[in-house]
Design a protein around this nucleic acid. Structure first.
Lengths: 243, 243
DNA sequence: ACCTGAACACCGTTCAAGT
DNA sequence: ACCTGAACACCGTTCAAGT
């Protein structure tokens, strides 16, 4: 993540011409993270990126086909970052699943402006072979038969990605807007008439905030728990089972 | 969902001037759905919307503060649509949860171009009081104590929203790109060397496609199953329990 | 081989002038 | 009170001309 910003703190742009061949995908991606982390995803223009790099805006086109190609590279880096931390192989499949899920969530929230894009980008060939191998391995070690291990892998992975990306979107909101939204949520729900909303009224003090990191952890825990149950229960004896 | 397109099938624009006061938020939203369903979210410009409505592009500003305000109204309609189908009260809390989840998923996939936006829009005050009451009620009928009912409500609702929005994003992709992506996914995973990826190799034939609707259903089932388990197990006896 | 400057198409938004 | 026309700022993208 090296990158030498070309703009001074005073805001004046220093037109340092970059040395030849100093531009490449990694350098550009690092600068893009710097811009988005600082100014938000909306501020990531070719102009701003060129300024950050001390290069001409259109020089970026030599390394990325178009803006979508650049964004894809950024989300790829998030997956890569999650992978370096998220694959501890212990003798406990459940804690391995948990560790992988939390590593992905952590990587997304480390760069929420990029993380929020991931949900809209899942189809494009991610090559997280190692993560897939790891997660499928966890499912099999849990005791699931092949077909169910495959299905549970898919659902576990996609839930983790979707939830992490949504949490990132929330974290990416302007702090003041987010604070106002969360506050109005609380206020409105506390004002509901008990006669019409008895259940909400009964538990309203216990509803966690939208941005409580415990939410994601509980989602992961729920999945792990029922994977455990499924592994111990033959499918034909399960209530509501489906092929 | 009424809306009278002003462009003929030949592509020529008929400049029908709209009668006075015929423009309002609902009419504009309906036209916006028509545009996005037909041409994708990227084609939803004020210009295109004005053409669809037979009105001047900037006339829309009289009814929506800005484009974000319009998009928010569209996602609100998806929530509203889910609500009209998704609140059947039976004597089975689990099937009620399932019905609500599937109604939300269905509503999002009915307009995937809009549905994909929802994950990035969760914080803005949704007022789905009735849905919240319904879901919290399900959790309590399951037998969860107040604090746990509140936490499980939050996680269930957010997982459903996040997963549905991600599925919508996939469905919103250009069909040919999506098909190519899914195919390359399958090809690449079938080519992995067994020595390095034994678990993937063992189950690869059983991994469902990314766009298999059964994935979401299984995610819902996993949550329901572990809610059932939690309701029957005092928290202090649970493995890996957390406050 | 790589970078720069200029130009183009497109789009959200504003606002004064119309009816 | 509502709608229209014109203008402005901004941005992704292309490409011929530079070094």
């Amino acid at each position: 993540m090296a990158g030498s910003p070309a703009s001074t703190s005073s805001g004046a742009t220093v037109r340092t011409r970059r040395p030849r061949n100093s531009l490449n995908r990694d350098v550009i991606a690092a600068a893009a993270f710097a811009v988005t982390d600082r100014d938000g995803i909306g501020a990531l223009t070719f102009e701003a990126l060129g300024r950050e790099l001390g290069a001409h805006a259109t020089a970026i086109y030599r390394h990325f086909r178009d803006k979508d190609d650049l964004l894809l590279a950024l989300t790829d880096q998030l997956h890569a970052q999650a992978q370096v931390e998220g694959l501890p192989q212990t003798d406990d499949w459940a804690s391995d699943l948990r560790a992988t899920a939390l590593a992905i969530h952590r990587a997304f929230l480390a760069h929420p402006q990029v993380g929020q894009l991931v949900a809209a980008r899942t189809a494009r060939s991610r090559r997280e072979f190692a993560t897939v191998e790891h997660l499928v391995g966890c499912m099999r070690r849990a005791g699931l038969p092949p077909a169910e291990a495959a299905r549970c892998y898919r659902v576990f992975a996609d839930t983790v990605l979707a939830y992490s990306s949504m949490d990132a979107a929330l974290a990416a909101l302007d702090p003041r807007i987010r604070a106002a939204d969360l506050r109005s949520w609380e206020v409105e729900y506390r004002m509901l008439p008990e006669a019409e909303y008895p259940d909400v009224t009964a538990v309203v003090d216990h509803i966690p905030r939208l941005d409580d990191p415990g939410n994601f952890e509980l989602a992961v825990e729920l999945m792990i728990e029922s994977i455990r149950v499924r592994a111990q229960t033959p499918a034909q004896h399960r209530p509501g089972a489906q092929v």
